[in-house]
Design a protein around this nucleic acid. Structure first.
Ligand SMILES: [Mn+2]
Ligand SMILES: [Mn+2]
Ligand SMILES: [Mn+2]
Ligand SMILES: [Mn+2]
Lengths: 217, 217
DNA sequence: ATAAAAATTTAGACTAGTCTAAAAAAATAT
DNA sequence: ATATTTTTTTAGACTAGTCTAAATTTTTAT
């Protein structure tokens, strides 16, 4: 049984493992967890002893099968709860992440099974992020940040980063939500802002925004 | 902001305060929390500093207005979640208490407000226990343990103790659920077992069971 | 190849919560 | 009224998680 804190570290390590195939560095984890490197060193020793990660001094950390499976269960819970909050309790999509950060630690396999059923076995959460199934299988949609596309790109929005409430409010305002058709018209050299068409409107978005919109490729 | 542990102590102290108008003793709290008296002394000092209780050395503890209000919010959350689990997720009434013990600590006033609304502002939980409203107002139904009634008593079940899964399974089996009509036919001197009629069936129940069935008076 | 800079680990301290054992106070019995 | 028992508090230690500061290792720059 993992503690709250251990679960949060493991989740962070999982996410960092996904973006980049190399070992995860101590400072990256510290940054992600808003903590200090010294604290991370202590924790990765602990998680290593419990075989959720493999750890080589000064080199970094790799998540194990067991660790990945555990992390995916936490992510499953997080995304199911977010779906519940939006679909059933009628929260706005920008209000649910912080609450799900708490709810994801509730321990009860039966609860998650029944919640999944109550929601009709959703495949993705309100932000378009895929929900791992009960076996930890997650179908990674092939997507890339809009920012990395070339002018002329036409496709649809798969998902958006869900942890920044202000970003989500903004995206909702301009109609940039998962499933929407989107086109990249031009890229401004100077600040890498993009001219796009989304929700049948033309507008300009900043690089920072474009990096957090994942589109189908 | 209270910690998990502080919330659990406060809740225990509230419940102990309700049953009996005297100060709550260190050993009573230790018993209720399954911990040692020395640990309790530490914690009541802390809760006292934060003005949730008043504490006099060697004498005991009294809960403050602020402490009562805080405790009632936790109880409100606990009972709303239990109601959700039974009404919406179709849990059995004996499966929900332990999960609600976790869920009651989730911090989000908006979540509780929306949950309350989603459930149709229920007045009592699956075990018949009253749900405090958003202002912490709780309507204490006038009830007493069936065990304390005299033969000839006829009335209905108000609530049952909810923390023992085996008791709840048993009560469900014999049809002794909140709202049901119940009559006390006779009391056995030797072991204080009761002959009752409930759910249109006559049966004998032990003292231990009769103490945990609260009936209208 | 060596020096400087950056990243990581270790050492030691702190808080929250818990425990056991001992001391002190209160309650009870003679 | 005194002695015994019970309850409560204190003292000191332990774990989880965190921090700062110092030591060590690795990387980068000259
Ligand atoms: Mn989220
Ligand atoms: Mn999400
Ligand atoms: Mn309960
Ligand atoms: Mn209940």
């Amino acid at each position: 049984m993992l503690s709250f804190t251990e679960e949060n570290y493991l989740k962070a390590i999982y996410h960092l493992s996904e973006s980049g195939s190399k070992a995860v560095l101590t400072n990256e984890i510290a940054e992600a967890m808003s903590t200090k490197a010294a604290s991370v060193t202590d924790m990765i020793k602990k998680l290593s002893t419990k075989n959720f990660i493999s750890y080589e001094k000064y080199y970094g950390v790799k998540i194990s099968r067991q660790g990945k499976s555990e992390a995916l269960m936490i992510i499953r819970k997080h995304r199911l709860w977010e779906t519940f909050l939006v679909e059933k309790l009628l929260f706005n999509w920008d209000e649910v992440h912080d609450i799900a950060e708490q709810l994801e630690h509730i321990q009860s396999p039966l609860l998650i099974q029944k919640l999944d059923e109550f929601l009709g076995f959703p495949k993705s959460d309100p932000h378009g992020e895929p929900i791992p199934d009960k076996n930890g299988k997650i179908s990674m949609p092939s997507s890339m940040p809009l920012h990395d596309q070339l002018p002329g790109y036409a496709g649809s929005i798969v998902s958006v980063k869900d942890s920044d409430s202000n970003l989500l409010k903004y995206l909702n305002r301009i109609g940039a939500t998962p499933g929407k058709k989107i086109r990249l018209l031009a890229k401004e050299e100077y600040d890498e802002s993009l001219e796009i068409e989304v929700d049948e409107k033309r507008l300009t978005i900043s690089k920072a925004v474009a990096q957090n919109i994942l589109v189908a490729v």
